[in-house]
Amino acid sequence: MATTRTPFEDLPASVHTVIEERTGPLLKIETTAAGFNSEISARLHWAGGTCFVKGLRTDHPRAWTQQREAEVSPHIRGIAPAVLWHLQTEGWDLVAFEALDGHHADYSPGSPDLPKVADVLRRLSETPCPDIELRRAEQRLLGYVANEDDAEHFVGSALLHTDLNNTNVLVDDEGALLVDWAWATRGAPWLDAGYWVIWLMAAGGHTPETAEEWAARVPTWHTAPRTGIDAFAEAHANLWEEIADAAPDDWTRRMRYAAQGWAAHRSAQ
């Protein structure tokens, strides 16, 4: 469920003052649709540049995600927009990122964006996992596997994004970048390619076979044991069934249908 949005202009004047100590006087403020889980989502313009700011109240249950994004940022340069500053003031937690001008990735079959997404996932798979606090893939999925031993397939030391919604992938002429690292996770290196399979199918037009062909463009996919992929697909069918039951809407239904379709394909092989 989306977080209620607060206009940037409604932040206390003291918060604006702290921000302008970093930027100089703001000349333009654009509220954006980005930041599905953010209370603040805006693009700020000043004489010296532009940035994107997302924020939550410090007492919000997901306020920890702000710190996670700030901590992971130095380790994913060239894969994600850089964090410019992170501040907590007057009950608000705000993170500023370099502004990007790309478009959300088009996951439809034949899209020229798909090779760029595969490439950024390849580059991420080659990025060392930082020694910071991260959730672990096997723990996140433990409650959704058929038996606890299946979760062992997800253990690993790779840095994972895990939320490959096409709105979290920005594409321009140069390539693709991954945004929204709130759910950064440590786990098996092939898992992000698996997450991508489900989002490709949910976008429409992809069969399980064609979605897996795109996953195979990420070299780490080939390190996954067949039983591990089977367990991952089944776990996400269970996960998205739970999510869609709790928050039924068009996109959760599409995700449930895609995850169930992939799991059925894997079990039929």
Rank of each mutant, 00 (worst) to 15 (best):
P219G: 02
R254F: 10
G49T: 05
C129D: 06
A70H: 08
E69Q: 15
T162A: 03
F154H: 07
I243T: 04
A151P: 00
W251I: 12
G24M: 01
A80D: 00
D150K: 02
T220Y: 00
E152I: 04
A80G: 00
T252L: 01
T207M: 02
Y257M: 14
A42D: 05
Q88A: 11
D163W: 04
G91I: 09
E9M: 07
W214H: 13
H45R: 10
N166Q: 06
A211V: 04
I40Y: 05
R57K: 14
A246R: 15
V120N: 10
R57D: 09
R253C: 09
A34D: 09
K28Q: 14
A158R: 03
A233V: 04
W46A: 12
A2N: 10
W64I: 14
L121D: 07
D106F: 03
G143D: 08
T58C: 12
P128G: 04
W196E: 01
E212A: 14
N238S: 02
L84N: 09
L44Y: 05
L160N: 03
A137R: 06
T89G: 08
L26W: 04
G204Q: 00
W251K: 01
V155G: 01
L191I: 15
W196P: 05
P219E: 06
C51I: 02
S38N: 15
F97N: 10
T227N: 14
A188L: 12
R77Q: 15
L177I: 07
A259H: 02
W251S: 06
L100H: 11
P130T: 10
N165C: 07
Y144G: 00
W214Y: 10
G48L: 08
A80E: 02
W190R: 00
A13N: 06
S14R: 11
